[in-house]
Amino acid sequence: MKILSLFISPLLALIIGLLFLGISRKITAKIHWRCGPPVYQPLIDVIRSFSQKSISHGAFFDFGIILSLSSSVVLIYFLPVGDLYAMTSGGLIAFLYLMLLGPFGIALSSAASGNPNSSIGVSRKFLLALAYEVPLLLVLLTVMTHYNTISLVEIVNIQAGTGMAFSSWALVLPGIAYFLILPAVLGVRPFEIVSAPQEISSGPVAEFGGKHLAFYTLQHALQLFVGLALFVNIFLGGGTLFGLLNPIAGTVWATILGIIIFLVKMFIVLVIELFINAVYPRFRIEQAMRYLWKWPTLIAFVGLVIVAILN
């Protein structure tokens, strides 16, 4: 299974990630009363980018973006999609740290291009990351303390026995906090500060064209996938649905159905996020930080205190 998932997981994540990007464009268009592009439009964009002749600001400019995409793929290996996962080493902490590597690679690459717009974008990205990491770390610590494990797979497995994490009342507050910060984690509209095209010429990717842009788009798709999948894994019970698959557990069908359930859950979360995304304007960075450090942090902190007292 692990060997198989080494090949399947990244492909699945790339396809689903690109599809989700397309779907999000389509749904946003529908909310705007537009027709919108076909759902496979991101794929066309990626092919177009690959066919174009890019410019390069040196070896480091190339290395950063390759590192970023590769680390996102490695991240997928850590992420249980239903029963599919390849690695568990290091658990959720290693996962959190590997999540750093993607933005870090892009930050290095774009700073090597020497464009001030990119630098502003990266500065915003790290500030935004600091802003949402505070509640995110509180939430993840709550979950890890509650289940007394640092393994992502184990967290999912425990939920498979008890239903979703939401059904355990101690994790309701962290779940709400995570949902409130999810747009910031995904970097969508109210928090689209990093790559604001109108202000800072799409920020870190200002100098990316051709294959660099294609790599960035793929990385963005994977990032979307990871952000949604982490939420589904931690709070919505991963690829299980209240023991629905228990009668056929262990068979290939259970695995496939588990993945489908997982993807459906991700899709639902994405659509709810899109409803927020489509109608909101952009925050300024100060407003975003103030928001993220106020309500989500407060809720997450109360959640952690409750769990700490319970234990």
């Binding site: 002749k53 890019s54 410019i55 190339d62 020497g114 717009n117 100098e207």
Partner: peptide, 13 residues
């Protein structure tokens, strides 16, 4: 993929 052109730091957006 298609080879990229090397540019210096002054060829910048």
């Amino acid at each position: 993929a298609r080879k990229s052109t090397a540019v210096d730091q002054y060829d910048n957006y």
